[in-house]
Design a protein around this nucleic acid. Structure first.
Lengths: 344, 344
DNA sequence: TTGTACGCGTTATCAC
DNA sequence: GTGATAACGCGTACAA
C-alpha cells in the first residue's frame, strides 16, 4: 500500500501526529487555526484514516450495530429505515451487518464487538435459542427485535426484547376466521422443525381452533421444505397450487403465516379459476404495505413496525445510558379486515 | 477490555504466538497435533481473533465488498442473494455495506478498501457521476451493477459495468403501449432532477412517443418530490390518486418507471372505481416477482436479475484474476405482457 | 517445526 | 495547545 497515513500528514503540516489525531476527532484542545490547516492538507492529499487501526486503539465507538438475519425479508426493510433514522438522530453511527442463515448470530456479534466496539446491538430476525452461557459473553447491551424465542430464555433480565405476541396474534386471526364461520381453515406454515415465530403462529392457530370447538386436522397444516426460505410468495404459490391440483383436502379459508405467502396463495387460487373471497377466504400476517395495495386487499395482522423499531432503539439507549434496565416489550398487532375474507 | 488475546492462548498452550497464528490461519507448516491442541484451547476459552488487528496487518483479504445504495429496494434483494451465492462459491468472503442516500459511495469504498482490503468491489444502485480523478483513487477492481450513468463516464475502460439499457427498454415499453393504440400515456417518473436511470427511462419514453408521431406532453409527465424515495408503491398511489381526483389531464395508459410505482397506481385507480385494463392500461418496469403475482398481472420489462448478478461477479473475478479486462455488459430486458394492458 | 521481535496506523497518556 | 511515545492485537520475517 502506497497509501498516505497520519504520520505523512503530520510531517506535511509540520506538527505531531497527536495534533493531527486531535484535528480528525474533533478534540477540544486544539487551536482552530492549526486544525483548519490540517484539515486542508487532509483534503488535498486525500488522506483517509484507517478504520482498522482506529478500532484497534479505541475502547468505544459511538455506534450501534444491527445484525439482521434474512435481510431480503420485506418486513425488515421498514424497520431498518427507522433504525437508521433513530440512530442518526442520536448522533450514533449505524452499522448494519447481515447474518447468513447458516451463521450463528451471537458468534457474529461477538466478532463485531471485538472489531468495532459498538455501544449497543440489535438482533433482527432469526431464531434465538442460545445458551445462557453464550449470551453472557455479550458484554454489550442488546435488544432482540421481532424474534421468536423459546420460553426458557424469556425470563432472563440480561437483555431486552421487542416483538408482538406471535402466539396471541395468530390466535386472534384464526379466531376471527372461525367467527366468520369457517370450519376448515388451511394453514400455510413454516418448516416442520421451526422453533421460532413459525411455531408460535402455528400453535396460536391450533389453540384458536380448539377453543372454537374445532379439532386441528394435520391435513390442513402445510409445511415448507426444511432449508428453504419459507416466507416467500413463491412458497405460497407452489404449495397452494399443489393443494388445489391434488384436491385431497377440503377447506374454505387459507391462513398464511406471512403476507408474502398469502399473496402467493392468492395467485394460485386465482390462476385455478377460484375467486377470493367467494370461493376461499385468505388471510396473512405482518401488515406489509403490499397487503394494503394488493387486489383484493389482504386481511392481515398489522404489526406496528415503526413503533416497534422506535421502541427497540429507545430501550437500547435507555440501557446504554443507565436510565433503565432491560425490558420485555410486547406490542399489540392490529387485525386489519381486508377484502380477502368473508363470512360463510 | 478484559478480553482474551492471541498471547494468552499462546501462554496457555505453552507455545509461541506465531504457532497460534498458524493454527488459526490454516498454515501448512504446523504439526497437526499442536494445531489440534491450540484449536481446542481456543474453543474452550472462547477466543475470537480481533479483526481490526488482522486487517491492519493483512495486505489482502480474500473478500468482495458490495456497496448498496437503497437497500430496501426489492429489486436488489434478489441480486444480493445471487451475489452472496456466487461469492461463497468462489470461497470469498461477502462484505455487504449499505450506503446512505446522502453518502458518496466512492468515499465509502475508499474507506472500506483501507479497512478491509477486499479484492474487488461491486457498486449496486444509486447514481454515478463521479469525476475520473476520484474513480482513479479506487485501487481495487470494481463493477457498476444496475447503475445509471452519465455518458461521459461510459467510455472509460478502468472499470466494468453491468446493466440493461434503461433508455432502450423504456423506449420498448412505451412503443408497445403506442402500438396498442394509446396516444395519451401518462408517465410516473422519478424526481425532476434525476440524473440516473430515472432520467434514462424518461428519455426513452419521450423518444418512443416522438417516433410514434406523438408530441410529448409535459402535463403527462409526473415527477416525484425531490428528496423522497420515489421507487415506492406509496409514491405511485399518492400521485395517481391526486391526478384522478383533479381530473385535469386525460390519458388511457399509465407507464410507471418501476413495478412498485405501478402497483401503487393500480390501487389508486381501483379505489376510484376504475378498472384495469378496461379504463386504464398500466405498465411497470423491473419485473419483480410481485409483478407476476399481482392482480391483474403487470405488464412490465423484466430485467434478467440472476444473469446480471452472475455476470457482475464473473466479470469481477475475471478482472481480479487477470483473465480479462474490464467490460461493459448490457443485458436485454424482456417485455412481459400481463393483464394490466390492452389495446384500444 | 517453532519462537522472538518488529511493525501495521491509530489513539491515549503523559510530559512539556 | 502541542509533541513524543507506549500501547492496541495480530501476522510474519527471520533466527533457532
Amino acid at each position: 500500500m502506497d497509501s498516505i497515513n497520519i504520520k505523512d500528514i503530520a510531517r506535511i503540516c509540520g506538527v505531531g501526529v497527536s495534533t493531527v489525531s486531535r484535528a480528525i476527532n474533533n478534540h477540544p484542545d486544539i487551536n482552530p487555526e492549526t486544525k483548519n490547516m490540517i484539515m486542508q492538507a487532509i483534503k488535498e492529499h486525500n488522506y483517509i484514516p484507517n478504520n482498522s487501526a482506529r478500532n484497534l486503539k479505541r475502547t468505544d465507538s459511538k455506534a450501534i450495530a444491527v445484525l439482521i438475519k434474512g435481510i431480503s425479508n420485506p418486513f425488515f426493510s421498514k424497520m431498518i429505515r427507522v433504525f437508521e433514522e433513530e440512530i442518526q438522530k442520536k448522533k450514533y453511527l449505524f452499522i448494519m451487518q447481515r447474518v447468513d442463515a447458516s451463521e450463528d448470530e451471537v458468534d457474529v456479534a461477538l466478532e463485531l464487538i471485538k472489531e468495532k466496539k459498538p455501544r449497543g446491538i440489535v438482533f433482527l430476525g432469526g431464531f434465538f435459542s442460545h445458551s445462557r452461557e453464550k449470551l453472557e459473553q455479550l458484554t454489550v447491551p442488546f435488544v432482540l427485535s421481532t424474534i421468536g424465542m423459546t420460553d426458557s430464555l424469556e425470563e432472563s433480565s440480561s437483555y431486552s426484547w421487542v416483538s408482538v405476541d406471535d402466539f396471541a396474534e395468530s390466535y386472534k386471526m384464526t379466531d376471527y376466521l372461525c367467527k366468520l364461520g369457517h370450519k376448515r381453515i388451511l394453514i400455510l406454515a413454516a418448516t416442520q422443525d421451526d422453533e421460532s415465530i413459525g411455531r408460535l403462529r402455528l400453535e396460536g392457530y391450533k389453540k384458536a381452533l380448539v377453543d372454537n370447538g374445532i379439532e386441528p386436522d394435520e391435513e390442513l397444516c402445510v409445511f415448507s421444505e426444511v432449508g428453504r426460505d419459507c416466507y416467500t410468495m413463491d412458497y405460497g404459490f407452489m404449495s397452494m397450487s399443489r393443494i388445489l391440483r391434488e384436491k385431497k383436502v377440503d377447506f374454505t379459508a387459507v391462513y398464511a403465516i406471512s403476507d408474502s405467502i398469502a399473496i402467493g396463495a392468492c395467485k394460485a387460487i386465482t390462476e385455478c379459476g377460484g375467486k377470493i373471497p367467494e370461493d376461499y377466504s385468505v388471510a396473512g400476517f405482518d401488515g406489509l404495505d403490499i397487503a394494503h395495495y394488493y387486489n383484493p386487499t389482504l386481511t392481515t395482522i398489522r404489526q406496528p413496525v415503526e413503533e416497534m423499531a422506535e421502541s427497540t432503539i429507545k430501550i437500547l439507549f435507555d440501557v446504554i445510558r443507565g436510565k433503565a434496565g432491560h425490558q420485555k416489550r410486547v406490542f399489540k398487532g392490529e387485525l386489519v379486515e381486508g377484502e380477502s375474507t368473508r363470512s360463510v
